[in-house]
């Protein structure tokens, strides 16, 4: 058996401690050990962005983070975006603008957009397209996603 480590981290404000393989992907720790299944797996190689989360305030691909490097980390997943049943302005805009079609890229896309608006509250279209370029979507052609991000940015004004 592989050495296990005791991993402590905070997910959406809640503390968790658990025994994991040191190279368990943070993605699997979230999905399988902690049952935060909102975060998805699309490629396992940091290409599609479907597994994006915020780790210590930065957008990362959770499939490329070994558990050992998440030690003591503060994590935000899609489950942490709404305030109870109240959607964040981005979630609301994705809903009303049809920014989510199949919905599989949506959790990662929402985290990337949240991160983008924190760094740049009023991005133009080019900035949105660059900011989300690590998050692939196969349904929308990105038009409604860009619209949703800009709508949320306007509403926050």
């Amino acid at each position: 058996m592989a050495d296990q480590i005791m991993l402590s981290l905070k997910v959406n404000g809640q503390s968790h401690s658990l025994q994991v393989h040191p190279f368990a992907r943070l993605l699997d720790v979230l999905r399988e050990d902690l049952r935060f299944t909102g975060t998805k797996e699309g490629c396992g190689e940091g290409e599609c962005g479907v597994c994006s989360i915020l780790l210590n305030g930065r957008l990362v691909n959770s499939c490329l983070v070994p558990a050992v490097q998440a030690q003591g980390g503060e994590i935000v997943t899609v489950e942490g975006l709404a305030d109870g049943q109240r959607l964040s302005s981005l979630q609301d805009a994705f809903l009303t603008q049809n920014g989510a079609q199949c919905g599989f890229c949506t959790p990662g896309m929402l985290l990337a957009a949240t991160d983008l608006l924190q760094r740049n509250p009023h991005p133009d279209e080019a900035a949105v397209r660059e900011g989300l370029a690590g998050n692939l979507c196969r349904c929308t052609g990105y038009v409604k996603i860009v619209d949703a991000v800009q709508t949320a940015a306007r509403e926050a004004r």
Binding site: F23, L64, Q69
Partner: peptide
């Protein structure tokens, strides 16, 4: 092992030979 963005790709694909890692992060 630093940021893991290369190493973890190889690891996830099951192609990584190494078994002992030094986490520099």
């Amino acid at each position: 092992l630093a940021g893991g963005t290369d190493l973890m790709v190889v690891f996830n694909a099951g192609h990584l030979k190494a078994t002992r890692f030094l986490d520099l992060s």
